[in-house]
């Protein structure tokens, strides 16, 4: 199944290397998607653990603590790195 990937917020340039879409086996989960996305990132490119996660518009927690739900074909996995610029 195809999963759309959206990233925004802090460290945008680093995250620009993430793919816009990934392919998972049927029944794949959020953690499967995150593993695929981050396994090849260098240490200084890793996403912040406080990065918010959402699936198709529904917030599910942070990178550090989230619901590891199953994904559906064409779901959008949204990653929002914390932003505090005033």
């Amino acid at each position: 199944m195809k999963i759309q990937i959206s990233y925004t917020g802090r460290s945008y340039q680093t995250a620009a290397i993430l793919p816009a879409e990934i392919t998972l086996d049927d029944g794949g989960t959020v953690d499967d998607a995150l593993h695929l996305l981050t396994k090849d990132l260098a240490d200084d490119q890793q996403l912040p653990m406080s990065c918010l996660l959402a699936v198709s518009g529904e917030h599910i927690g942070t990178l550090a603590s989230h619901t590891n739900q199953s994904l559906q074909d064409r779901d959008e996995l949204i990653l929002i790195a914390p932003v505090a610029g005033g």
Binding site: T8, G9, Y12, I80, A81, V83, A84, G85, G86
Partner: peptide, 9 residues
Amino acid sequence: AAQWGMTGT
């Protein structure tokens, strides 16, 4: 309201 680069939340 917050911002980083060309992104806002």
